[in-house]
Amino acid sequence: MPDAGGPLLPPAGPAAAVPGPAAFADVLGWLATHYNYAIYILLMMIGLYAVLAKGNLVKKVIGLNLLQTAVFLFYLSIGKIDGATAPVVWTDRPPGAEGVPYENPVPHVLMLTAIVVGVSVTAVALALVVRIREAYGTVDEGEILASDEAQEEAESARAEAQEAAADAAGARE
């Protein structure tokens, strides 16, 4: 597991001004020890892509959940301590396990709260999707926008027709 206490970024020395093989090796070494950052970024980008690019609203919600899961994993992985056990009281420690430390419980507690919030957010999002489906008959973003535009055009056309009728009535008088 990555060393939680290590430096966040490779030290920027004079060699880093001109990126040479040494700087490249630095970055590679940083990735090797902090690979959880790379996985977190990858998962988060997949989620973000789904939220931005997918037309289906349910898939957008799934992308949002993926984004959340990436954050959970990131927080839990930075709370990991080498050789430590889960941060729940270990009452029946076997002999030989007396010195085993606990992992940092603060990220766990934070993420427990975040999971509950995430479930609520998902529930609200799905409720909105259900209402949208009832109103528009589809969950596709493009079709919803097209339907909105068509309705607006129809309304403006009706308003123009009314105005024209009123003008014609005024001209006759």
Binding site: V88, W90, T91, L112, V116
Partner: peptide, 9 residues
């Protein structure tokens, strides 16, 4: 909830 993976949630 105290000595296992449990609790109210």
């Amino acid at each position: 909830g105290e000595d296992g993976p449990g609790g109210g949630f």
